[in-house]
Amino acid sequence: MSKKPEVNAAELRARYPDVFDRPASSRLATPMMLVAALAIFVFGLVDLDFSPSRFISGLSQLGWISMMMIPPDPGSSLPLYLKALGETLSIALLGTTLAALLALPVSLFAARNVVPSILLRFPVRRFLDSIRGVDTLIWALVWINVVGLGPFAGVLAIAISDFGAFGKLFSEAIEGADRKQVEGIRAAGGSALHEIRFGLMPQVLPVIAGQVLYFIESNTRSATIIGIVGAGGIGLQLAEQIRVLEWQKVSFLILMILVAVAAIDYISGKLRFAIIGRRAVA
């Protein structure tokens, strides 16, 4: 090896001016963005009535509330709460299943490799998008108007808002499926339905099952809150106890929710591993 070539800083500088002197616009971009972000933040604090005195008095209130939450105590309403928790789990399970059953046929119409015609695909997709754009809580309010207060409205609310999400996810899973099996079925003389049943479904069902299980998990969380607007489940109890300032019961209910969510996470994680294999998940 020869010795190192002489490095001439001045020459390098002349040859690569961009590296040494970045233009002011690119040097200032990041600080400008930070300043803008900070400005919006400060404007937001002012516009949303943040005042230090209010914040501090609120914090001391919150401290009092947390003190009164200890120890968590259900009083005499433990059976009622257990029933409400069962209701919540039922809402999540039924709503997700219903959504999956409804979404499976519709998602076929939104998948590019099943329905090549954009005329049919486009409206189906936009329809699913608009359903997804409306929050579960809003759907719950709408269904309460239709079937009355109670957990059934919650089931329907979860079903319809997940229908939008599943439609999109399933159609993406179908589009990701391998083309070869479908072609094989067609070459053997199968009809379009045969192609879907024997070519696509075996490929996408494990993916779909994993997604459904994941949604049951996340819907347990959603189902805890739709009760706040009156659609059944543990959220109803929680909102009521908060309104009447029964803080020990509130903290007990929150603990119940945490435990239930953790349990469902654990079970559905196990099931997902069993269905799609450990490697596919991790």
């Binding site: 949303l48 914040f55 609120g58 919150l62 509330i65 969380r221 809150i225 706040i228 300032l245």
Partner: peptide
Amino acid sequence: RTVPGIVFALIFVIAFGLGPMAGV
């Protein structure tokens, strides 16, 4: 993460009063 945001909102509305501050 597990306690839903709206539950925090319900409690904060009582501590900080009605209004956007509780939501934030």
